[in-house]
Measured scan of single mutants.
Amino acid sequence: MVQKSRNGGVYPGPSGEKKLKVGFVGLDPGAPDSTRDGALLIAGSEAPKRGSILSKPRAGGAGAGKPPKRNAFYRKLQNFLYNVLERPRGWAFIYHAYVFLLVFSCLVLSVFSTIKEYEKSSEGALYILEIVTIVVFGVEYFVRIWAAGCCCRYRGWRGRLKFARKPFCVIDIMVLIASIAVLAAGSQGNVFATSALRSLRFLQILRMIRMDRRGGTWKLLGSVVYAHSKELVTAWYIGFLCLILASFLVYLAEKGENDHFDTYADALWWGLITLTTIGYGDKYPQTWNGRLLAATFTLIGVSFFALPAGILGSGFALKVQEQHRQKHFEKRRNPAAGLIQSAWRFYATNLSRTDLHSTWQYYERTVTVPMYSSQTQTYGASRLIPPLNQLELLRNLKSKSGLAFRKDPPPEPSPSKGSPCRGPLCGCCPGRSSQKVSLKDRVFSSPRGVAAKGKGSPQAQTVRRSPSADQSLEDSPSKVPKSWSFGDRSRARQAFRIKGAASRQNSEEASL
C-alpha cells in the first residue's frame, strides 16, 4: 500500500507489516507532472514488484545509463575542470599563466611583423604560434561548454546555449574565428590575403580581455564609479562649461589675427588640448587678449579636469580597504559563530546551576481559565487552554471583563483591629484584591452614581456627606486619597496599604 505524507511526517506501520521504503516523488525527473509535487512517498516491500516509481530507473539526467562509479567519476571530473577554468585557485594559476604568456607572445610578434627589418623573421614564428593558440583556445572553449554542466542552470543543451551566450564566451568564439580567418588568408599569399590579415588581427587584441574572465577589475571599476557618480558628474560638468566658454572667448579674441583659429572647431581643439594639460603646441594664441583669457581659464579649468582622477584614486583606495575588511570579517565569522554555539550549549546543559530557565518553558505551562457563560453571564466551569493561546486569551478576557487571573496568589494580610475594612479593594481582606471592580459596581459605588440613583428620595436630598476616604477608595483603587487633616496617621497607613496592593496587582498582571 502506498501512502503520501504532505507535511513531511512518516506514518508508522503496524508491527506485523514489513519494512517501508521512503522516497520523494518530487525529486524523480521521470515522474508525471501530476505526481511531482514534492510529497513523501512511503511504499511497502511489494511496491517495487508492482512497478512503482521507486523501481523505475531514472529516465533523464546526465548519468541515466551509467554505473554509479562511472557517474561519480564523470561528475567529479566535470566539477574539477569547471573550477580550474572558471574559478582558478592554487596550482590552477599555472595554466592561466601559460595562456597569458601565449597571448602576450602573439601580441609581441604581431608588433614585430609590422616592422620591415623583422617582418620576415617574425612571420614564421607567428604562424606556428597562431596554430598553437588556435588549438589551445578551441579545446578550452569546448571543455568550458562541457564542464558547465556541473551547474544546475547550465545543464542540458539549453543550459549550454545559455552559457555560450555569456560575454566572455562570445569574445572567445570571435577571437577563434578571427584567428582561423587570419591563418587561412595568410596561407594564400596574395594582396587580398595581406589586407585581410592586417584587418582581422585587430580582433586578436581581444585575447587580452579574456585574461580576466571573472571580471573582477571591471566590477571594481564600476563599483567605484557608481559610488562616486555625483562627484564625477559635477566635476565633468563644470569642466565642460569652462571648455566651451574658454574656446569661444579665445576664438573671438584671435579671429582675423591668428590663422590657427579660423573656425570655432579649431578653438575647441585648442581648449581641449590645453585644459587636459596635453599641450601639443600646434595651436596657441598670439594676441595679448587671447593670452590673458587662455591663462585665466587654464587656471580654472585644469583643476576641474584633474579632479576626476583624484576622485577615482580615493575611491579605489577606499574600495580596496573595504574588501580587505570584508575578507577579515569572513575569516572571523565562522569561528565567532562556533564560539557562540558552544557558549550557548554550555549554558543550556549546565546542570549544576538552578537559576537557568529555558525560554520555551514559559509557554509550556498550562493555565486554568474560567469560561464565560453567555446565558447566565457569569464565569462557571474552567478548562485547560493550550500554551500557545494562553496569553492572547488572557488579554482578551481581561480587556472585556476586567478580571485578573493569576496562578498562585500571595497570602493577603488580615485586617488589623485598629483599621477596619474600608472597601472591596482595601488590600486587608483576603480574596478581595484578586478581582477588579466591574464597570457597573464602579458607577453605582461612586458618589455621582449614588446621587443619581437616589436623586428622587428625600434622604438623598437632606443627607450630605463630606468627601471621605471611603468614597475615594471606591472611585480609584490606584490613587492615594487626600487627607483632610494633617495629623491623621490612620489615613496615611491606609494610603500605603493601597499602594502596596496596587503594585502587587500590576506585577501579577505583567507576569500573566
Rank of each mutant, 00 (worst) to 15 (best):
G256R: 05
G8S: 15
R207Q: 07
V225I: 15
D212G: 15
L107F: 14
T378I: 15
N258Y: 00
V182M: 13
R332G: 06
A147P: 04
H260Y: 12
F261C: 02
T217P: 12
N190S: 15
R144G: 10
N350K: 12
Q341H: 06
L81P: 03
G159R: 08
V225D: 03
V175L: 15
E119G: 13
L85R: 04
W269C: 00
M1V: 02
F248S: 13
R333Q: 11
A62V: 13
H228Y: 12
E231Q: 02
S247W: 04
D259N: 13
H96N: 11
C242G: 06
I278N: 00
A185T: 15
W344R: 07
M1K: 06
E130K: 03
P335L: 05
R144Q: 15
R210C: 07
P335A: 00
A306V: 08
L356V: 11
R214Q: 12
S352P: 14
M208V: 12
F104S: 13
A265P: 08
L200P: 10
A185G: 15
L351F: 13
D212V: 01
T296P: 06
I340M: 08
S247L: 05
A253S: 12
T277S: 11
T217I: 08
E254D: 03
T287N: 00
L318V: 07
G290D: 03
D259G: 09
R214P: 09
S358F: 11
L351V: 12
I238L: 15
G271V: 01
S314P: 06
Q188K: 15
D266E: 06
E322G: 09
S195P: 14
A294G: 14
I340T: 02
R198Q: 14
P285L: 03
K162R: 13
G215R: 06
V320I: 13
W360C: 04
K319R: 01
D212E: 13
T349I: 11
Q204R: 01
R213Q: 10
Q204H: 13
L339Q: 00
M1T: 03
F304C: 03
A337T: 09
N190H: 13
T276N: 07
S122L: 12
P335S: 07
A265T: 05
L293P: 04
G281E: 00
Q341R: 06
S342L: 09
A193V: 11
I278F: 04
G239R: 05
K283R: 13
K255R: 08
A337V: 10
P430S: 08
G418V: 14
R353G: 07
H228Q: 03
S223P: 00
T276I: 05
T234P: 05
K230Q: 14
P386S: 15
N350H: 12
N79K: 15
A317T: 07
G189V: 10
D172G: 04
G301S: 08
Y264N: 00
L249P: 02
Y280C: 02
A309V: 13
T274M: 05
A235V: 06
A265V: 07
T194I: 12
P420L: 15
D266G: 05
T114A: 10
N258S: 08
G281W: 08
Y362C: 12
F261I: 13
D282N: 00
S247P: 03
L206P: 06
E231D: 00
L197P: 14
G290V: 00
G281R: 01
I311N: 02
C169F: 14
I205V: 11
D355E: 11
T263A: 10
F329S: 08
L206R: 01
K230M: 07
V225F: 11
R210P: 07
G313E: 06
T359K: 08
Y237C: 05
Y284D: 06
P285H: 03
L292P: 04
R207W: 10
L243F: 10
G215E: 05
K219N: 08
Y280H: 01
A343S: 10
L203P: 12
I273M: 00
W269L: 02
F305L: 07
L339R: 02
L101H: 04
G279C: 01
L307P: 03
K331T: 04
R353H: 10
S113F: 11
A178V: 14
R333W: 11
L268P: 02
R325G: 07
D212A: 05
D355V: 09
H260P: 02
I273N: 01
P411L: 12
V250A: 04
T217N: 02
R291S: 00
A337G: 07
Y154D: 03
Y284C: 09
G290S: 03
V250L: 09
S55C: 14
G301D: 05
L312S: 02
M211V: 11
K283E: 06
G271R: 01
L356R: 10
R213W: 10
L388F: 14
I209T: 11
G159E: 09
G222D: 08
D259Y: 09
P285S: 04
G9D: 15
R214W: 11
T359A: 08
A306P: 03
L243V: 14
A294V: 06
M211R: 04
R210H: 10
T114I: 09
V250G: 01
A193D: 05
N350I: 10
E231G: 00
H328N: 01
I278T: 01
Y127C: 07
D282V: 01
F304S: 04
T263I: 04
A267T: 05
L268F: 09
H96P: 14
L221R: 01
A253T: 09
A196V: 12
S199R: 09
R201H: 14
S195C: 09
G279D: 02
G159V: 04
G315R: 02
A306T: 12
